[in-house]
Write a protein that binds this DNA or RNA. Structure first.
Length: 867
DNA sequence: CTAGGGTTAG
């Protein structure tokens, strides 16, 4: 009540002044509005209808308008767009002040509310208000800020009295969109129309020219800058330096820098980031060192630039020092610095420190979360990455394009198609689009083995870049679809010129086809282009020759390569191991060691893997000991896995068991699984049972190992055990499995999850038609009594053993026996059909069910019908 | 005008 009285008196005091000429008496208006309508938040609810009563001295038509203007302006000041818009809609009949429209447009621009902005614009038009340069500018500002540059430009073109500010603004908008050419055109017409560019214009111009890579024109503009008297404008010169650096012209950047009479912090920051971007990290740090204690003080940007430089060059020690320095200067409290800092730790491989920084941040943005997720992804810690992604969403932080590409990377290295598809769904639902996102999706699908999905993303991507093509080609290569890879390689060349990455993507396809001639052709292509100095490319070439069984050619290329990096040596050493030349491998290692190059974790993985696959027991141990003793590398699970595999292949099962028990980290299922494979190979049922026990403790849901154990039992003809084991699998649902290239593929009746499901279905369909022609289909009776023939046949095609056999027919080369295992008894109709298939396609098929083996050949089965 | 996170390659 007291407040109300106070309000009333204030109004009475102000209102007799009749200050309603809003534009001319801006300040008074503000005072008026503040005191009359919103003396305190508690009175905000006063309805407009109550006001006129207290303002009875003012003619109604005028104070009505004043009230709208005043109230809307007040709401604009409070940044309450929704309420302001409501009021604007209500005032539709009245013409508001220009200032009010301007305030509204400003608020729409700030809130990026294009929808509301358009409404205000429409109102201005329908009220017949002339769009002068002030209102026009605001409209342009609103449209451009809300992202509708086109509409902004249309209004801009119609403004009679443009000014430099507006020219700069629209030019900058085009530059931000990446349309540098349009920015440049605008600059030209601006100069032609006689507008005098200011420092902002020149800065924007240099930005465009740098991004366009137009060095010549840049130099011309440089001359124009000097002529226009901006040669000593620190802002312009700063952007000039940045231009030269971005253009890779370090000398001119330095020359301009040296000739500057005054330098500010931006000058020095630009120098540091310019040096670093051009690979001159030391010179960048030199500038930084000189800044410390000089009159130009280090600022937040400086710190961010230097820490980012450490991140991208992997200098952890320097990064830590700068961290300590930042704490002294209290930069570490700033979010931007924190983000860069944690990214630095993550990129240098120190995730513990990164996590510490992350946990200590008092404010986090989407960048902080993304940096952590990206760090875990790079570290192949997919679970941590995915958990963080979920936590981030729970906390209400919206993932952006950067976040989803990182999380897709994690799904890819996890090989988790299911998670990847979930993320894909999330991306679709939230319309998070960008080319890198599409590329990351293709990569994820490719790495998870689904080239069909990868291709559908590829096909749906209208503007592809070279990364898109390379990802697809590499995907086909790695998924053993070399013909598809080569096809796409040819198609690609109609649209873009392949680069070195393309070559490294296509060569493994040649390697897996053992298409030596094709590989050599591409090698020739590379030689003609004269780009053999790319170490990545050379490494892939060597690898291709190794895999095409041309060790001699690999060796020649290796010897001819002057710049050998770690991978070059690793590929060669692993190549020798792969072909069983342990002695040469060790000799090559010694040579590398003399050069002072040290193998890393990944190198040891590929070398140990090669040793285990060719049974190089002695050399395998030698490299293992080098890793542990000389290189002081803690063995990781994959190293242990190789060693267990090596021991198993050598028949040393109990040693492998002892080895696992002595491991410094907890063995996972892959380690035990390797031993279980060994048990199978060497028919050690006793050990297999112990090992399987451990596996089932760890992953009771993982079918693969039940399958393996049941294989071990049945090979030892322990049918009772097979039955007990398989009875437990999936509630006795029919399931079958087939091993192809070391991978067990499991099929469940009626389930069409397999990526090849469609192909399998049509294959079986065709076979069934053939069978009907043979007049055999009438024998189908077991599956579904009472259903019509078609349905019965469909049911047969969906039985797990048929799916597995179909898969085998697709995947295994002609003539190779198809071996399928089923957990329950084979169904009679399927039995008939398999008999038919064995004759029709001329293949031996071995089907093992829970009772016995069925050897199918030429339309007969070894069980002679007793099944 | 400077500054932070993402996609392809062994």
């Amino acid at each position: 009540m007291l407040l109300m009285t106070k309000t009333a008196t204030l109004i009475l005091r102000v209102s007799p002044n009749h200050q309603i000429e809003t534009q001319k008496h801006h300040k008074n208006l503000k005072f008026h509005s503040r005191s009359s309508q919103f003396p305190s938040p508690t009175c905000q609810t006063i309805s407009p209808t109550r006001i006129p009563a207290t303002l009875s001295l003012i003619p109604p038509s005028i104070h009505q308008i004043t009230d709208y203007n005043a109230e809307i302006n007040k709401l604009c000041e409070l940044r309450n767009l929704q309420k302001a818009m409501d009021l604007v809609s209500k005032s539709e009949e009245t013409i508001l002040d220009l200032e009010t429209y301007c305030h509204m447009l400003q608020l729409c621009a700030d809130s990026k509310a294009l929808h509301h902005g358009k409404k205000v614009h429409n109102l201005i038009i329908s009220n017949g208000i002339e769009i002068d340069s002030v209102l026009g500018s605001k409209l342009v500002f609103m449209y451009v800020s809300c992202g509708d540059v086109k509409q902004g430009r249309r209004i801009f073109d119609n403004i009679v009295k443009q000014n430099v500010f507006l020219w700069n603004f629209i030019m900058n908008a085009y530059a931000k969109m990446g349309d540098y050419e349009e920015g440049l055109c605008l600059f030209k017409s601006m100069v032609e129309l006689g507008f005098k560019p200011d420092s902002y214009t020149f800065s924007c111009m240099f930005k465009c020219l740098a991004s366009m890579g137009n060095g010549k024109l840049g130099e011309t503009v440089h001359g124009y800058v000097l002529k226009s008297g901006f040669g000593f404008d620190i802002t312009v010169v700063n952007s000039m330096i940045d231009f030269y650096f971005k253009f890779g012209n370090v000398d001119d950047a330095r020359k301009v820098f040296v000739e500057m009479p005054d330098r500010d912090v931006i000058t020095l920051n630009t120098m540091i980031s310019g040096y670093v971007a051009n690979g001159l990290v030391d010179q960048g740090f030199e500038v930084f060192k000189n800044m410390i204690g000089s009159k130009v003080r280090v600022d937040l940007s400086t710190m961010v630039i230097v820490v980012a430089a450490c991140a991208n060059t992997g200098v952890l020690i320097l990064g830590r020092m700068i961290h300590a320095y930042a704490v002294k200067g209290e930069f570490d409290k700033k979010m931007k610095f924190g983000n860069t800092l944690l990214d630095m730790y993550a990129k240098c491989g120190d995730m513990d420190s990164a996590l510490k920084v992350f946990n200590n941040m008092n404010e986090r943005s989407v960048v902080s979360w993304t940096s952590m997720i990206a760090g875990y992804s790079r570290d192949r810690k997919s679970d941590e990455a995915i958990n963080l992604f979920l936590e981030m969403k729970k906390k209400g932080v919206k993932p952006d394009t950067f976040t989803v590409t990182s999380i897709l990377h994690a799904c890819a290295s996890n090989g988790s198609l299911e998670k990847g598809k979930e993320v894909h769904g999330f991306i679709k639902d939230n319309e998070i689009q960008s080319l890198p996102v599409s590329n990351a999706l293709m990569d994820m699908y490719a790495k998870c083995g689904s080239m069909e999905d990868a291709y559908s993303v590829f096909a749906d991507t209208p503007f592809k870049d070279i990364v898109s093509w390379n990802t697809m080609i590499g995907g086909y290569s790695k998924n053993r679809l070399p013909n598809e890879a080569l096809d796409l390689f040819i198609k690609m060349q109609r649209e873009v010129t392949p680069d070195n990455v393309t070559m490294t993507c296509i060569l493994p396809a040649c390697a897996s086809l053992a298409a030596l001639n094709k590989g050599r052709e591409i090698h020739g292509h590379i030689l003609r282009k004269g780009t053999t100095s790319d170490p990545y490319l050379v490494n892939t070439l060597i690898d291709m020759y190794v895999k095409c069984d041309r060790l001699f050619l690999a060796k020649s290329l290796f010897d001819l390569t002057p710049i050998k990096n770690l991978v070059t040596w690793t590929v060669m050493i692993a190549g020798y191991c792969m072909h069983g030349f342990g002695h040469e491998a060790v000799l090559t290692y010694n040579k590398m060691d003399l050069k002072g190059i040290k193998l890393n974790e990944a190198s040891f993985t590929s070398i140990l893997y090669a040793c285990s696959h060719s049974g190089l027991m002695q050399e395998g141990w030698k490299f293992y000991n080098i890793m542990v003793n000389d290189c002081k590398i803690e063995p990781k699970l994959e190293h242990y896995g190789c060693m267990v595999d090596l021991l198993c292949r050598g028949g040393k099962l109990s040693e492998a068991y002892k080895f696992i028990k002595k491991m410094s980290i907890k063995p996972d299922v892959t380690i035990w699984g390797a031993l279980l494979c060994g048990c199978r190979f060497h028919h050690d049922v006793k050990l297999a049972e112990i090992v399987a026990e451990r596996i089932f403790e760890l992953e009771p849901e993982n079918m693969e190992y039940y399958v393996l154990l049941s294989d071990i039992y049945s090979e030892a003809e322990k049918w009772e055990e097979v039955k007990t084991l398989t009875d437990g699998i999936r509630n006795n649902t029919g399931c079958s499995w087939i091993e192809i290239k070391g991978k067990v593929n499991i099929f469940v009746t009626g389930n069409k999850d397999n990526p090849e499901a469609k192909k399998i279905e049509s294959l079986l369909e065709n076979l069934r038609m053939e069978m009907r022609k043979d007049g055999l289909s009438r024998k189908l009776k077991h599956a579904l009594v009472g259903k019509d023939e078609m349905e019965k046949e469909a049911a047969v095609c969906g039985h797990s053993e048929m799916l597995a056999i179909g898969f085998g027919l697709l995947k295994l080369p002609a003539g190779q026996t198809i071996r399928v295992t089923k957990n329950v008894k084979v169904c009679g109709d399927c039995h008939e059909m398999v008999k038919f298939i064995s004759k029709n396609v001329g293949r031996q098929i071995v089907l093992r069910d829970c009772n016995r083996f069925h050897h199918f050949k030429d339309g007969f089965c070894s069980c002679r019908g007793y099944c």
